[in-house]
């Protein structure tokens, strides 16, 4: 059994495909709106404004914290949004590109890369606003920015790897995305997104200990705010596992895409 079927694609055609996929996802749908790409800025800006209004209304007041709670929570929720959005878009690759993938045999590494680039662009816009807000309120983040970005990579890779795995399974049976989409809400609650790890007790503390997201998000914030890093040995181990997981999933995804897609066509 075997074949030698396949188109040879050049680096230039792959780069052009990447450019087209990013453009398509970021701007094509927004063409049907008066404000167009301005929405890419307006939406994250509006969520910042909502957090500021909540703070001024004293809704957000957890008491004494190492850094102002608003600064803590906006970076946490922005990171979580990026994580969840990337998970969703990767798990929906077959739904979004189904026939195109099947007929044109698009190079899967370019499709996956496009999802990562789109997620990074979507994260960067609110992140710039957050940096500006920190600067206005006197929080310096420059010294730990490199460490933050270094941990952002495994954060994104983990969400895409989970998304790709669920995407493969969902192409066969919808149960997987229905289950995981709902599970993700629970994952947010058992990850230190809106609270600090030090405030967790009992069973939650045990779950956090075994949750890889704990190490990534806690230390991303620690780098950003210049506070004490949390269990770096375990964090480096998590980074290693995430990289390994991502490589295995990508390889598996690329090899099995067509096998799965023909089943999804039924």
């Amino acid at each position: 059994m075997g074949n030698n079927i396949g188109n040879k694609t050049s680096k230039r055609s792959n780069l052009f495909l990447l450019n087209q996929l990013i453009n398509l996802r970021l701007t094509a749908d927004l063409k049907k709106s008066f404000l167009g790409v301005l929405w890419l800025i307006l939406l994250p800006l509006s969520s910042m404004v909502i957090w500021l209004l909540m703070k001024n209304a004293k809704v957000l007041d957890p008491g004494e914290t190492v850094v102002p709670y608003l600064a803590f929570i906006i970076i946490g929720t922005t990171l979580w949004t990026a994580f969840y959005d990337l998970y969703r878009s990767c798990s929906q690759i077959f739904a979004n590109y189904s026939k195109i993938l099947l007929v044109n045999k698009l190079p899967m590494h370019i499709v996956i890369l496009s999802e990562l680039v789109i997620a990074f662009i979507k994260f960067s816009i609110p992140f710039v606003f957050i940096i500006i807000y920190y600067w206005i309120t006197g929080i310096s983040v420059w010294t730990g920015l490199f460490g933050f970005l270094a941990l952002l990579v495994p954060w994104m890779l983990l969400s895409s790897a989970i998304g790709l795995t669920i995407g493969l399974l969902t192409a066969i049976a919808k149960d997987f995305s229905l289950l995981t989409d709902n599970l993700m809400r629970l994952v947010m609650l058992v990850s230190p997104v809106i609270y600090d790890i030090s405030s967790a007790q009992g069973m939650l503390a045990t779950i956090l200990k075994y949750n890889p997201l704990t190490y990534l998000i806690t230390n991303m914030r620690a780098f950003l705010f210049g506070t004490e890093l949390y269990n770096m040995q375990a964090t480096l181990f998590v980074v290693f596992l995430v990289l390994l997981f991502f490589i295995i999933v990508c390889r598996f995804f690329m090899v099995n895409t067509h096998r799965i897609l023909e089943r999804a066509q039924l």
């Binding site: 694609t9 495909l17 398509l24 044109n104």
Partner: peptide, 10 residues
């Protein structure tokens, strides 16, 4: 767009 899907460069 469609040309890119067919593996062509710009």
């Amino acid at each position: 767009l469609k040309g890119a899907f067919y593996g062509l460069s710009k």
